[in-house]
Design a protein around this nucleic acid. Structure first.
Lengths: 190, 190
DNA sequence: GGCTTTCTTGAGCGATCACTCAAGTATATA
DNA sequence: TATATACTTGAGTGATCGCTCAAGAAAGCC
């Protein structure tokens, strides 16, 4: 009976994610979204409910894709090589709308107002960190790194280095690849 | 002949800086500023010209104060001890309106729109990095760190670590002091 | 006390914000 | 082909945005 939607929902969320990632929450107006999604207000609200609801979908997709890329890397090269490659991978993708992490951008922008999206970003960051910790733990079991380390501490530090790298990569005149290399080299000394 | 201003301008800029630092550019409305500065719109615009002009003053004050605190630390304890203490100092101050760096927050929020304030924040970050580089160079001259290092590379990495630390410190459930300690310890191995 | 000069006041400006809804259009079933 | 069922359209909502300006209040000089 019904009419089919003109657009592919997953594709729309991807495009919204890229815009939000680049421009942030307040920096992205509904006009911007309407232009990028090629939707009029009515369709937009029928499809997503609100700007906030779409941002949440975008944030979740961002986290999911990031975790997926790391998992692929682990699958292909093992934990150590994956963690060594991941920093460079995070800043080299040309098609990415920004170098900095969308989760940290969201956290920094919305945390002060106690916005639910900040909490959600924070939770995703914690999820990533647990993924890192699991890899460090596995490396320890495999004897790839010394037994004296605490996997959770290593993950916390690795995450912090990654966030710093990705903020630095946003700056002009900074050789972020050099920083990525140094982070990778740091892993060898564990 | 004239009437004296009711307010101390430097004090006003400090209060505006704290608000902008915490809430960011778009997250801070003129209503917020009027409340914190206890000024009506007319006085505000007579005193500062625009929201953007005040943000610029606030940003400059932020950078100046940060550089000052580092300089004091160097004066008191020398370059190495100063750089080792600085990370902890950056995240421990209770009176600070946020843990994250105002310069990086501004950069991340406004860079995508090519806003002049993002460029200014970027320039201040570069200024800090040069300050760090000068200290590393001095430590090298004093034989405190190995001669093989490039002071500019060390400064770039130190800055990146610092930015990462300060984003991490904004998160809930993260022991940022532990990260600060690790950054300090890292300096000992140079 | 006048007079001048500056600062303060606050109503209100046009623009933009996120969002709504009634009307129109396209598609599937009957 | 007729009807039911989405989906799309876009003018328009009230609220808030950064900002203006004419009028009033306070301080220094005569």
């Amino acid at each position: 009976m019904p009419r089919k939607p003109n657009h592919d929902r997953a594709e729309l969320i991807d495009r919204a994610r890229d815009l939000f990632w680049r421009q942030g929450w307040a920096g992205t107006s509904l006009k911007d979204l309407e232009a990028v999604l090629k939707m009029k207000p009515g369709s937009f609200y029928a499809a997503f409910g609100s700007k906030e609801a779409l941002f949440e979908l975008a944030l979740d997709k961002y986290a999911e894709d990031g975790a997926g890329r790391l998992a692929e890397l682990v699958e292909a090269h093992g934990p150590m090589a994956a963690l060594k490659r991941y920093p460079e991978l995070a800043i080299c993708r040309q098609e990415a709308p920004a170098k900095a992490c969308m989760l940290s951008k969201t956290l920094l922008e919305l945390q002060a107002h106690g916005h639910p999206l900040a909490k959600r970003a924070s939770a995703h960051l914690m999820g990533m960190e647990e993924q890192f910790a699991a890899l460090f733990a596995q490396m320890q079991r495999d004897g790839e790194i010394a037994a004296e380390h605490d996997p959770k501490s290593l993950a916390r530090r690795y995450q912090s280095d990654l966030l710093g790298l990705r903020v630095s990569a946003e700056r002009e005149g900074i050789d972020a690849h050099a920083i990525a290399r140094e982070i990778a080299e740091g892993l060898e000394r564990l």
